[in-house]
Computed example of a mutant assay.
Amino acid sequence: MSPLASPTRTGSTAKPEDETREYGVRAIERVCAVLNLLQESVDGVTLKEVADAAELPKSSAFRYLWTLEKHRYVERDLDSGLFRIGLGFLGMQSRHLEVLRERVRPSLERLRDTLDETTNLGVLDGHHVIYLEIIESRRSVRLAASRGSHDALHSTALGKAIAAHLPESRVRELLEQVGMPRRTADTITDVDDYIAELAKVRRLGYAVDNRENEPDGRCVAVPILGTRLPAAISVSAPEARFPMRDVEKTAQTLIEVAEQITLTPLPMDEPQ
């Protein structure tokens, strides 16, 4: 045998290249299955639901979730044990968003305590609004989404407040890509009507979702204009407890809170 020749190994445990590649693809598909499940859930999912979706034992599913949580693509509710989509998908802005959330949360808590209704912080994430923070009303019946969940741009007060300060061409492009599905009988589903609604939002300084996203819900929102992030805060409640006559007064309170939030520049807005 030539000294340069390699001896033939018997009983090798090395996997053929095709098998290794196939294993890697299966792992990616399982991650995608987990993320798809989380993305579709509003309230969060259990470990068993994740294991079933990914066709994995619970122990393996937990390792997947632990790794995704470590990189902030998944977050776990310590009280309920449910898993939700995380903020890691918001990319390089994630630190800015964390700073914004930390800055806004005390104001939302005070606002919730004053109005006794749910308060929200939302930012534009792709074609939708993501709820970056939610301070729920303490009432047993309340109108509240889940932190990290997404909602439509065209049917929510948060979406309108943000879209009103985007270029019209961008708003039209976003709506063209995702459509304007009818959520309720009062949802605006025509682009030109929506553009006219945004002009009204700019004139008044606040946006209203008057049973447009939920048939028995009402919400008012104002933009946070002091940062580079497309963000807004809102108050939401069942319509029976939030009559239209109270909207303007609530909006003025929100405007004052938004102005207070932006009095001190956020770190990403300070000159470098």
Rank of each mutant, 00 (worst) to 15 (best):
R147K: 15
R147C: 11
R147P: 09
G148S: 06
S149D: 13
H150M: 02
H150F: 13
D151W: 02
A152D: 12
A152Y: 14
L153G: 02
L153N: 00
H154R: 03
S155N: 12
S155T: 13
S155G: 02
S155E: 02
T156F: 00
A157G: 11
A157P: 12
A157Q: 06
L158Q: 04
L158G: 08
G159L: 11
G159T: 11
G159Q: 05
G159Y: 01
A161Y: 00
I162R: 00
I162H: 00
A164F: 04
A164H: 10
E168S: 09
R170M: 10
V171L: 14
R172G: 03
R172T: 10
R172Y: 03
E173H: 14
E173I: 03
E173R: 11
L174T: 05
L174N: 03
L175A: 11
E176I: 04
E176T: 07
Q177E: 13
V178H: 02
G179T: 02
M180K: 02
P181M: 08
R182K: 15
R182M: 13
R182Q: 14
R183V: 01
T184S: 12
T184V: 09
T184E: 13
A185D: 11
A185W: 07
A185C: 08
D186V: 03
T187W: 02
T187G: 03
I188N: 07
I188R: 15
V191W: 01
D192I: 01
D193N: 12
I195R: 08
I195M: 15
A196M: 05
A196Q: 15
E197G: 01
L198A: 07
A199D: 14
V201C: 07
R203Q: 15
R203S: 15
L204A: 02
L204Q: 15
L204M: 06
G205I: 06
G205F: 01
G205S: 12
G205K: 09
G205C: 05
G205N: 06
Y206D: 12
Y206W: 14
A207N: 05
V208S: 00
V208F: 02
D209P: 07
D209M: 12
D209V: 05
N210V: 01
N210I: 04
N210M: 07
R211C: 10
R211W: 11
R211Y: 08
E212M: 10
N213S: 03
N213A: 07
E214R: 07
D216N: 11
G217I: 14
G217P: 03
G217V: 06
R218K: 11
R218W: 01
R218V: 12
R218P: 00
V220M: 07
V220E: 09
V220I: 08
A221P: 04
I224H: 01
L225Q: 13
